[in-house]
Design a protein around this nucleic acid. Structure first.
Length: 717
RNA sequence: GGGCGUUUAGCUCAGUUGGCUAGAGCAACUCGUUUACACCGAGUAGGCCGGGGGUUCGAGUCCCUCAACGCCCACCA
């Protein structure tokens, strides 16, 4: 046997991912092919994915590994199919999230953000994120992300801020921005307001107190808010209280002495609940706030931003609400105003999604965006599949959200974020949008103005990410790649991010930001439990990648993972795909060993059984292409796995042994050519899923149609 | 209180528009040191596809209903 195509020695040992992944990634990077401007051959059709920018505040977790895998599969597939394929990476400053992470770090060091100036804090968090950002880029590389690093963008880069300001100004000019005293979700620990989406509803069992309030009995779970209550509210149709008229006043003895109360009739009252009568605390309760707004009632702050009682509480001033509660009840009991206590009252309370502390609603002046005018075009786009959410259940959920959308509070009282370009009057508290920084005095009262100290909700800028990253309005990338092909992200941020990108994208550019939406689920542990540090079941994708190889990790994340549903990451499953990588390695070894004497470039007379074998892989390729176009990666990956192992290796190779060792030269040559084609085709269709091992094998092929597999033509091209 | 989803082999899950004699990985069992691979091969066992009803020549797949579990949204003091 002549040896014109020698088999590289590396094939004599089992496949070792750790030894080759780094150098393969470097080779791709140096090739420049991650940047679509450098791709070979003329490419007319463009393809673009904007990466959901990972938060620059820690390591990548399993969810990141999943999105990298899915998006990398899509972009590699598009690249091989001859498209101008761009995957644009980013890093997110992640406002509140990062500030919370940093505060914890400060806490560990025995420091606190409240002892620092905003500037000091900002500077420190900036350095912290920059460090994390480069760390994170290395981790994305480890996972094989074939994204275009030359277009990398950070969410606090100047270009981002400029575009965000332009959008804010346009919204203001269109009368879609207002500053209003509204009740907001206030977290006393984090000292900021939060959007509704940033709170959790938690069921709790608390005491429910029945208190004598003049001639009435009122029920409350929060006696500490009742100091200023001077309105007593009941349903207009409640027969029990028909003798009391709206506007009646009466004197009564209350916590800290006699007060005058006024009767209010409002339909918000549930006659079945408690006694059907309640007093209201408009400053600290959203229902109460709305009742007060409807009737033009007074409201007064009882609890400060730290969760302590204000002077109105008299002797209780300065106490934390929970400490005060029992003492207040004691006093009420002493005065004979406590009627009874229901010990097993269950209700839902709002908690901060980060610290789980009780949300203390507060009335504050905040910037809001009117959402209905923005939501309407988005409802149409999603309803008519101009933005096609490929999982029908999420389409329904998104439409439901948009149809019931409420105005969006975009003010955050934190340092880490994009400052709101606005001025506030120091005298009358009026607010003015001021992107050009030209407002010097109050237009209402002539008073002096100061910069608004608040920052934007981070999702306000993130919501503009697709068109910002592509350089709207003038950038060439915007013209080439917008609307982008697909947005792939976690279903948990459908409202936070996806819906807002659709609304703001349509608002700003008049076009949808992406044509398709692929939502993946939560990555859970092997048994389906949610990963958490406290449970100790967190699986680090980077460790898994080091142990089994990135290709195996990727297969473990994608095989059987139906779009939109949660996925269990099982190291045993990943281990199985490590074996598969080795299987492929040995298939390559076999084929290369058996074709050392094959003369490439000469005519082959194929035997009919070989034509049949090749027809089958062509069929498979077509089927896979269809699956991939329809985002059925979970099926495509499994089919390739099955083909390579149980068809190519178990059957075709086994059946080939006698042919290759036989003395029919024509048949042998035909089979050699066939096996070689099966190998190259398998490498191609497997490459989006297992990029490293396939590229490593490709580099050792004596005959190929592209220097690198990453740009090799897809079999059906 | 609304909405969405899940229920298929011991475990974790696939099963795309109804054609399935229901699959995969892991686990289990039997055999096998055949020069691609022991990170292996050949084979075996294991499921009234949550319950009930319906549509259909045909249902894991469509419709109704019940049950269990899960998720999301929501201002009951």
């Amino acid at each position: 046997m002549s040896d014109q195509n020698p088999v590289p020695e590396k094939f004599l040992k089992p496949y070792n991912p750790q030894a080759i992944e780094g150098s393969i990634y470097s080779a791709w990077k140096e090739s420049g092919y991650f940047n679509p401007d450098n791709l070979p051959n003329e490419r007319t059709e463009s393809f673009c994915i904007i990466m959901p920018p990972p938060n620059a505040n820690g390591s990548l977790h399993a969810g990141h590994a999943l999105f990298v895998t899915l998006e990398d599969i899509m972009v590699r597939f598009a690249r091989m199919r001859g498209k101008k394929a761009l995957w644009l990476p980013g890093a997110d400053h992640a406002g509140f999230e990062t500030q919370v992470v940093y505060e914890k770090k400060l806490e560990k060091e025995g420091r606190s953000r409240f002892q620092m100036t905003r500037e000091e804090l900002y500077k420190e968090i900036w350095d912290f994120t920059q460090e994390n950002k480069s760390f994170m880029e290395g981790q994305l590389e480890q996972l094989g992300a074939s994204c275009d690093w030359s277009r990398m963008l950070f969410t606090l880069d100047d270009r981002v801020i400029k575009t965000v300001y332009d959008t804010f100004k346009q919204l203001a000019d269109d009368d879609l921005v207002y500053r209003g005293a509204r009740i907001v979700n206030w977290c006393p620990k984090h000292q900021t307001s939060l959007s509704n989406l940033e709170t959790n509803a938690e069921e709790r069992t608390d005491k429910f107190y029945y208190l004598k309030y003049g001639p009435f009995t009122i029920g409350t779970a929060r006696p500490e808010t009742k100091f200023g209550d001077k309105y007593v509210v009941m349903h207009p149709d409640d027969e029990r209280y028909k003798e009391y008229k709206h506007g009646d006043t009466f004197e009564l003895e209350w916590i800290n002495g006699p007060i005058t109360a006024t009767v209010v009739k409002d339909e918000a009252i549930d006659m079945e609940f408690g006694t059907g009568v309640m007093t209201i605390t408009p400053w600290h309760d959203s229902t109460d706030f709305e009742i007060a707004e409807r009737h033009g009632l007074d409201y007064e702050q009882i609890i400060d931003e730290r969760g302590r009682l204000l002077p109105i509480a008299g002797e209780f001033e300065g106490m934390k609400i929970l400490e005060a509660r029992d003492k207040i009840i004691e006093k009420l009991e002493g005065k004979g105003l406590l009627e009874k206590i229901d010990e097993n009252y269950t209700h839902t309370v709002m908690t901060c999604y980060k610290c789980s502390n009780l949300i203390e609603p507060q009335v504050r002046k905040q910037w809001f965006i009117k959402m209905m005018p923005l939501a309407e075009p988005a409802i149409e786009a999603i309803g008519k599949d101009k933005v096609r959410i490929i999982t029908p259940q999420h389409k329904k959920v998104a439409l439901h959200f948009l149809n019931n959308i409420q105005d969006w509070n975009i003010s955050r009282q934190i340092a880490w974020g994009i400052p709101i370009p606005a001025k506030i009057c120091t005298k009358c508290d009026a607010g003015f949008v001021d992107v050009e920084d030209t407002v010097t005095k109050c237009a209402d009262c002539g008073g002096t103005v100061e910069k608004d100290p608040d920052t934007f909700d981070t999702w306000f800028s993130s919501g503009q990410w697709p068109f910002i990253t592509l350089g709207y309005p003038e950038g060439n990338d915007f013209k080439t790649y917008y609307p982008t092909s697909v947005m792939e992200t976690g279903h948990d941020i459908l409202f936070f991010w996806v819906a807002r990108m659709v609304m703001l994208g349509l608002y700003r550019t008049g076009e949808v930001p992406f044509k398709d939406v692929y939502l993946h689920g939560l990555v859970r542990d092997a048994k389906g439990a949610k990963m958490s540090k406290s449970k100790g079941n967190v699986i680090s994708p980077l460790e898994v990648s080091e142990q089994y190889g990135t290709d195996a990790l990727r297969m473990g994340l994608v095989v059987g993972n139906t779009p939109g549903t949660d996925l269990n990451l099982d190291p045993q499953k990943v281990s199985a795909y490590k074996k598969f990588a080795n299987k492929l390695w040995n298939v390559a070894r076999f084929v290369l060993t058996e074709t050392t004497d094959f003369e490439f470039g000469t005519e082959v007379a194929f035997a009919s059984e070989d034509e049949e074998i090749m027809r089958k892989i062509d069929e498979l390729s077509k089927e896979l292409t269809d699956d991939m176009e329809q985002y059925r990666f979970h099926l495509a990956s499994e089919k390739i796995y099955h083909y390579v192992w149980h068809e190519l290796a178990d059957k075709i190779i086994e059946d080939s042994k006698p042919v290759l060792q036989g003395d029919d030269e024509r048949k042998k040559r035909s089979r050699q050519a066939t096996l070689y084609t099966l190998l190259t085709t398998s490498l191609k269709i497997l490459h989006p899923f297992m990029p490293f091992v396939t590229e490593e094998i490709w580099q050792s092929l004596p005959q190929k149609d592209a220097d690198m597999l990453i740009v090799a033509p897809w079999p059906t091209q």
